[in-house]
């Protein structure tokens, strides 16, 4: 039931909610991330938002952004990204050696897009309360919606500028009781209460719609 407490620390449940959020959306979101708050009853310890789970869906029109694919920088960067993916894949394959097995070379040797890379490096990031877009959303208990290259590039938040550098045009952070839901897109997507309501429903928490 909607009124029940959501099992926030169940990653399967989180993954399903993240997928439901953007797979069923009219807008084309590239990814959804749940930044999980370090829950502590010690009020002297500041809370930190760290990686909870993420769902990467991909871009709809990624072919149109391949203009620079022949440049030396592009080639070197792709080599670096593929090397990191191979290393990560080795770690994962080692983990599941007794089970499902490796995902295979074809999943690591293809071009690693900017948004895929942004999603992957997000796993290494964390935000103190009030810092970065997710931390700011958490601190203010208000959704943050940034649309457009100029607004992202001009943001005081490093994560917004980083997102812009990797070709994202829209980034949204919506706070929850236990963390922050972030969505990103390479398309221009403007603020809608529809998405807020979906997050509110799927993640079962209260946000102040009056503050949006």
């Amino acid at each position: 039931g909607v009124g029940e407490t959501m099992p926030f620390f169940n990653q399967e449940s989180l993954q399903q909610r993240l997928q439901a959020l953007i797979d069923g959306a009219r807008e084309s979101w590239a990814y959804a991330i749940f930044w999980q708050s370090s829950s502590t009853s010690d009020f002297a310890t500041p809370s930190v938002l760290g990686w909870g789970d993420g769902y990467y869906k991909g871009e709809e029109n990624k072919n149109k952004r391949r203009a620079s694919s022949s440049s030396a920088n592009f080639v070197a960067e792709q080599e670096h990204r593929k090397k990191v993916l191979r290393e990560l894949n080795s770690l994962i394959s080692g983990v599941q050696a007794a089970g499902a097995g490796s995902v295979g070379d074809d999943a690591v040797d293809e071009e690693v897009t900017d948004t895929e890379w942004f999603f992957l490096i997000s796993m290494t990031q964390s935000f103190a309360n009030g810092n970065g877009l997710p931390g700011l959303a958490m601190y203010s208990s208000s959704p943050i919606w940034v649309t457009g290259t100029e607004k992202l590039a001009g943001s005081q938040c490093e994560r917004a500028r980083q997102a812009q550098g990797f070709g994202l045009q829209t980034i949204v952070c919506i706070p929850s009781a236990n963390g922050v839901v972030e969505l990103g897109s390479t398309e221009l997507i403007f603020e809608s209460s529809d998405l807020m309501n979906k997050v509110k429903y799927l993640f079962n928490f209260n946000i102040d719609m009056g503050s949006v």
Partner: peptide
């Protein structure tokens, strides 16, 4: 250092699975 937190491991597993699906969905034409 080879010691990934479990949430990252799960997320990476899914990322690679989905990536493989996307790669195999690409049209050969």
């Amino acid at each position: 250092d080879g010691d990934l937190p479990i949430t990252r491991k799960k997320s990476l597993e899914r990322f690679f699975e989905k990536r493989k699906e996307r790669m195999t969905m690409v049209s050969p034409y």
